[in-house]
């Protein structure tokens, strides 16, 4: 039991250290979502009441696009110098690697959200009418849904032609229920309405897709 979690920890720490030194993913994600915020703000020019209606959608679209930037880089590092091939022939369980990558991406996207949310609040003059702690729950569940599927599909599109464009093509259709749930629950909480159905849906989605991705990852990693 300790061995798989040990591998996960080592891989995760390696990724975090690499990211800490280069800051490639986080910088490009931050700047990208900043651009999305500014462009959207120019194109809609909303009042405080309108922005409460559309903010849920804007925030999540910005995070979704920014997350794709990070997800695309997830496996690129392992392709260089055939690290991934070495991993495939090693006896280390594939799911440990997958868990490490998912956790790493989760941390990156969470940091991005923590830095960008204040900016959103300022730019769009947001104030939640419902319980704000639920937004935190939605953020964690929604980010997890994006990151689990995203990491899985990034591994899938790894050896396809034009892989950078392949990831969103695979990720977005399957994520539609999750995206709908994130946007609707955020909007509901901002407007002081109930969001229980959407949160339950997100929890179920997360459970089902995490399980299936863990079950199928080894197959996808070893596909030849």
């Amino acid at each position: 039991m300790s061995a798989p979690t040990g591998i996960t920890r080592v891989t995760l720490l390696k990724d975090l250290r690499l990211e800490w030194r280069s800051k490639d993913a986080i910088n490009s994600m931050l700047f990208f979502s900043l651009l999305v915020v500014v462009v959207f703000s120019f194109s809609f020019d909303p009042s405080a009441e309108e922005s409460r209606q559309i903010a849920g959608g804007l925030i999540w679209v910005a995070f979704l696009f920014a997350a794709v930037v990070a997800l695309n880089q997830t496996w690129a590092r392992e392709i260089r110098n055939q690290v991934l091939d070495a991993y495939r022939v090693s006896p280390a369980p594939a799911n440990s690697l997958f868990a490490a990558k998912v956790l790493g991406n989760f941390i990156f996207v969470t940091v991005l959200e923590a830095l960008m949310t204040p900016l959103f609040i300022v730019f769009y003059r947001l104030r939640a009418l419902g319980p704000a702690w639920q937004l935190l729950l939605v953020a964690v569940l929604g980010t997890w849904a994006l990151v689990v599927n995203g990491t899985f599909f990034a591994a899938m599109s790894l050896r396809t032609r034009s892989r950078e464009i392949m990831l969103p093509l695979l990720l977005f259709p399957i994520s539609i229920p999750a995206i709908l749930a994130m946007v609707q629950s955020t909007t509901a909480i901002l407007n002081g309405e109930g969001a229980r159905f959407w949160i339950v849906l997100l929890v179920t989605y997360d459970l089902v897709f995490t399980t299936v991705c863990l079950l199928l990852f080894e197959t996808v990693l070893n596909a030849e």
């Binding site: 899985f152 259709p173 229920p177 179920t204 897709f209 299936v212 199928l216």
Partner: peptide, 16 residues
């Protein structure tokens, strides 16, 4: 693998 994930997504699509 994608077909399995896609089919699992269908009930979520309908419910949401």
């Amino acid at each position: 693998a994608l077909a399995v994930l896609g089919a699992l997504c269908v009930p979520f699509v309908y419910f949401s």
